[in-house]
């Protein structure tokens, strides 16, 4: 079965966006000292998690447009319009740039939301307010769900990452580096004291 050019473009955009964003945000993997093999597996695992949030955003657009404004589109149409909105994330690897990276990431995210509002308005023939509600409510919902602690999504995420990558947890670079320095200090102190006793 041959996919139409629109589908091909949408899938390519989604694939490149995910790949690029993962590379841009890969510092956490380096910080956690993953091996080359774990690095690849972690990228795949993070890609899967990213695809889940994409799916959620897509479904939320579909759900909100239908329930709030009574307009229904086929799921594949929504898939294509959300994919196209993700185009700016193709530049996600720029997040790696020192100092500028985090600012560029914020800029890309805003650009994606603006894109989505524009695509939703066009595809559903919504006015700006309707497009805003449908596009942003889904994002707010996603943020809420992922930050509600009683849902224990973090536990689920950790379990999944452990299963796929073999890493028990992913920690901040700060924590890891300070832990390393403290360990070095303790051992150097022990070595100094040992020599002191020996002399």
């Amino acid at each position: 079965m041959m996919l139409s050019p629109t589908w091909q473009h949408a899938l390519l955009i989604l694939f490149l966006s995910i790949l690029s964003l993962l590379i841009g945000n890969s510092v956490v993997l380096f910080a956690n000292r993953v091996s080359r093999g774990q690095f690849i597996r972690s990228l795949l695992a993070f890609a899967f998690l990213f695809a889940l949030s994409f799916l959620f955003w897509m479904l939320s657009v579909q759900f909100l447009a239908t329930t709030l404004f009574g307009v229904r589109k086929e799921p594949w149409e929504v898939f294509i319009l959300v994919s196209y909105s993700f185009t700016p994330f193709i530049w996600g690897f720029l997040v790696l740039l020192p100092h500028l990276g985090p600012y560029l990431y914020a800029l890309l995210r805003v650009w994606v939301v603006i894109n989505l509002i524009q695509h939703v308005a066009q595809a559903y023939r919504f006015n700006l307010f309707q497009a805003l509600v449908v596009s942003i409510l889904g994002w707010v919902l996603l943020e809420l769900i992922t930050s509600l602690s009683f849902l224990r999504l973090d536990v689920l995420k950790r379990w999944f990452l452990k299963l796929t990558t073999g890493k028990a947890e992913y920690r901040d670079p700060d924590d890891l580096v300070f832990e390393y320095v403290r360990a070095q200090r303790l051992l150097a102190l022990q070595a100094a004291l040992k020599r002191e006793e020996g002399s």
Partner: peptide, 22 residues
């Protein structure tokens, strides 16, 4: 850096002739 072998690493890196003392 070898975090699991820091003790060995620390010992090797401290020059015996100039051992740190308190």
């Amino acid at each position: 850096p070898t975090p699991n072998k820091v003790s060995q690493e620390a010992l090797e890196e401290i020059d015996a002739e100039h051992a740190p003392t308190l």
